[in-house]
Design a protein around this nucleic acid. Sequence first.
DNA 1: CGGAACGTTGAAAGCTATCAACACCGGTGG
DNA 2: CCACCGGTGTTGATAGCTTTCAACGTTCCG
Lengths: 238, 238
Amino acid sequence: MQSAAKIDHPCRQCAFYAESVWHPVEQDSLRSLAQNFVRRDLSEGEVLFEQGTDNRGVFCVSRGLIALRTHHADGNSTLLRLAYPGEVIGFRSFLGDGQHQTEARALTPSRVCTVPRSASSHLLQDNPAIMKQLATRCVREIDRTHERICSAATKTYKEQLADLLMTLMDHHGEQQQKGQRHMRLPLSRSDLADLLGVQPETLSRLIKRLEKDGWVQIKGRHVTMLSHPLRDLSASIG
Amino acid sequence: MQSAAKIDHPCRQCAFYAESVWHPVEQDSLRSLAQNFVRRDLSEGEVLFEQGTDNRGVFCVSRGLIALRTHHADGNSTLLRLAYPGEVIGFRSFLGDGQHQTEARALTPSRVCTVPRSASSHLLQDNPAIMKQLATRCVREIDRTHERICSAATKTYKEQLADLLMTLMDHHGEQQQKGQRHMRLPLSRSDLADLLGVQPETLSRLIKRLEKDGWVQIKGRHVTMLSHPLRDLSASIG
DNA sequence: CGGAACGTTGAAAGCTATCAACACCGGTGG
DNA sequence: CCACCGGTGTTGATAGCTTTCAACGTTCCG
C-alpha cells in the first residue's frame, strides 16, 4: 500500500452526493475531509446544536428529520424550518457570526454528517468552489423564507395548514388502498402550531375545520388524506 | 500615459467601499470592473428591475431607498424589504435561477451602481473572494427574514408598526426642538400595509391607536415622535 | 393509582377583513 | 376661478377569526 493511494470521497455513498456541498473537494484535500468527517446518529428529540452556542461546523442531514427552532425571550418559540435528508444546516452561523441563532433537534431518529468548523474553513480555503455550493444553499434558504413570508401575508391559517399537511404527506406518506395516503405525523400539535405561528388551541380548531371539508382525517398522529384531492375541494379550503 | 497605468477602484469613492462586494477585485480585473461598472439614477417610483425578468447583474444601492416587492397571482403584493445605501440587491437571482422573484422600485430619488451579469460572472471567476462577500450578504438577508418571521409570530401588528416607524425614523429622522424627531415618510399607506401584511384600512386604525398612546404623531407623510420614547411608553404599546 | 404531558372544548373578548361611503389633495380643463 | 376627476387615505358597521383563560379528556409511565 502506498501512502498516495486514492482516497474515496466520504459523501460518495450518500444519495445526495451529486449536490453535496463537499462535492467540489478535490483529491488533495480529500484526506482532510475523510479524516474529519463525522457521522452522528440522533434519537428522536435529541439536540444537534443549541441556540446561542458556538458553531461547530457544517451539518448535512443524511436521514430522518431535523427541526430548526428559535426560542424567544418570552419563553415561546417559532419553528423556522424542517430539514430533510440532503439539506445542509448550520451554514448560516458557519458563514456568519459563528453563533447559532436556532436550535436543531431531531424530530425522528436521524443521521447527520458533520465537518467540523476548522476543517470546513481549511477545505473552503483550498476549494473555493465550496463557497459557491454554500451560496446556493443560502439562496434556497432565502427563497424558502420569502415564500413563507408571502404565504403568511396571503393565505389564511387554514390554507397554510393544508399546504403544510400536503408537503408533509409528500415526504412521509405511504400509498394505501383506493386512492388514500397515510402518514405518521412527525410533529406534535405544539410544533405544528409553532410552524404556523398560532396557538395550540387554534391549531386544534383548524384541524377540525379541515376535517369537516372531508379530504383529510387526523387522529392523534395518524393522518389520512385523499391521494389526489379534487381541485374543487382544495378551492373550497378558503 | 502608459497602458499599464494603475486603475482606481470604481467603488473607492463610495462611502461603503470597505464592505463592498467588489472590494476583493484586484488590479488585474479592475479594468474590467471599471469598464462595465454603471451608475444609474432613479427618480421616485422608477423601476430598477421587474419581477419575472432575467437578472441583468448585481445592484448596489448608493443613495436613496429601494423597495423589493413580490406581486402575487391575486393582484396583491408584499413588500419584502427596504434596501438602503450600502445594500446589495438582485444577488439572489444572480446566484440562483437568474430570474428576479421581486420587483425593485425606488421609493425616493436613488442612485444604484450596477455590474452587469456577464462581467460579474467573470469577476467572480477571477476573484473567488467575491463569493464570500456575496455569501455574507446572503446570510444578512437570511437573518433579516428570520427576524421578520419571528416578529410576525411574536408581536402584534401594533408593535410591528411601532418598530417599523422607529427604524424608519432612525434612517430618515431629523432632530427637532425639545427632544422630538421628524421625518417625511418614504412610503405610502399601502406600502406600509404591504410591509406589515395587513389591509390599508387596518393600517389606518393601527396608526390611530399608536397616536392615542401619545409618543408619535402621523399626519399624511409627516411623522413626529419623541426622540427617546420612555420605557414605560414602549411597554404600553402591547 | 397518581401525575405529567399532551390535546381538546367552551365562552368571552379583542382584532382584522371586507364592503361601502366619504374626505382630502393635486392636477386638468373649461 | 371653479368644477371635475382619480388617486389616496379615513371612517363606520358587520362578520369572521384568533387569543386567552379555564376546564376537561387522553395517554403514557412511574
